[in-house]
């Protein structure tokens, strides 16, 4: 993860540095709609990308900043609420019907401001206390939206919140929505990868590893941590906007405590060390959530029990591989590599 690289980068083009596996994955993602049905596109991949983005914002904070924040789902939901409030919904008494190019920036700014504020409160705490304070604010957010009817329309929230028909496309149709969420997920992934190697990202990792030394180098450690919340909240906000479009509605339950915990589970299961982890976690979560009820009922069990499966999976991951499925995979590769080239560890 060298920011200051010497040996390779200037000679080889950036395209050559992308591993083949990524080209294949990209190609598969692009032609996916040719192979799978609308249900898979919308319900499995749509959700994977949306939840993956929200979990990515947690990964950025936890992986690069060492801060486990449980507020990311609430930030996303606030973004979604802003789209419903400033844009168009079935609740005409509240929604303002602004055009998309106004309500999207408003939603992102409001959500990022909220995330920054929570960050400013949370960064003075460490470890378990960060988790507790963000969880407390997340549950306060849930109860507030449920009781506030003037802005958040209380218990029922907003329905009929759909994406704008831009370029004559109904973006909520499965295939357009697939490409929309895929595009947003790829962009936010690239943004995190790029920023992680920028001066800000490098400094954030310095703050994670050695805050005292960072201060002795002239860095305002607290400001860096808060700025990390701002950046993460922008990604969560875009995830939240897609989330409200996917559901076509938003209500307090969108950011209820179970949903808040789900984001943590997704990030941890996938792995918080690398930005692809949250998307892997989101895919596993979505596949389990979508298909395990059928399988469970097939065995004569209640479909509701899929949460149990996810919980057991979570437990197994935390137990066997603290750095998630990605960590398992990397270790397996390393073990395989041992049989190949003992010097470089590379496959021949």
């Amino acid at each position: 993860m060298a920011l200051v690289e010497r040996s390779t980068p200037y000679q080889s083009s950036w395209a050559e540095r992308i591993p083949t596996a990524w080209w294949i994955a990209g190609l598969v993602a692009l032609i996916m709609p040719a192979f799978v049905n609308d249900f898979i596109l919308f319900q499995v991949f749509g959700w994977t990308f949306v939840l993956g983005m929200i979990a990515l914002s947690l990964m950025f904070l936890a992986g690069y900043g060492g801060m486990v924040s449980l507020i990311q789902m609430s930030v996303a939901a606030l973004g979604g609420y802003m789209v419903a409030i400033f844009g168009t919904s079935g609740v005409a008494a509240i929604s303002m019907d602004l055009p998309w190019w106004l309500y999207i920036p408003i939603a992102v700014i409001v959500a990022a401001a909220f995330g920054t504020l929570v960050g400013a409160l949370a960064v003075r705490t460490e470890g378990i206390y960060t988790i507790m304070i963000t969880l407390a604010i997340a549950s306060a957010f849930f109860y507030f939206t449920r009781q506030n009817y003037g802005i958040f329309n209380g218990y029922s929230g907003f329905n009929l919140v759909v994406p704008p028909h831009l370029f004559g496309v109904d973006w909520r149709q499965p295939m357009p929505f697939y490409y929309l969420t895929l595009g947003c997920a790829v962009l936010s992934y690239l943004a995190v990868v790029y920023v992680s190697r920028s001066p800000f990202g490098l400094a954030l990792q310095g703050v994670r590893d050695n805050p005292r030394r960072m201060a002795a180098l002239g860095f305002n450690v607290t400001a860096h941590r808060i700025a990390a919340y701002t950046f993460a909240s922008v990604i969560a906000a875009f995830g939240g906007i897609l989330l409200v479009w996917q559901n076509a509605q938003i209500s307090p339950g969108t950011a209820g405590i179970p949903a808040v915990i789900d984001i943590l589970v997704i990030a941890v299961v996938g792995g918080v060390r690398r930005p692809i982890g949250p998307f892997i976690g989101a895919l596993i979560y979505t596949v389990l959530r979508t298909f395990s009820p059928d399988i469970l009922t097939g065995f004569g069990l209640s479909g509701e029990r899929f949460k149990l499966l996810i919980g057991l999976g979570f437990l197994a991951v935390v137990f066997f591989s603290p750095d998630g499925v990605l960590g398992l995979w990397e270790r397996w590769r390393a073990r395989k590599g041992r049989g190949r080239d003992p010097l470089t560890g590379e496959a021949k």
């Binding site: 920028s198 800000f200 490098l202 400094a203 860095f219």
Partner: peptide, 13 residues
């Protein structure tokens, strides 16, 4: 970087 401007820069050098 710590003693110069651009500590928050998002652009790689």
């Amino acid at each position: 970087r710590g003693v110069s401007r651009g500590r928050f820069s998002l652009l790689r050098p």
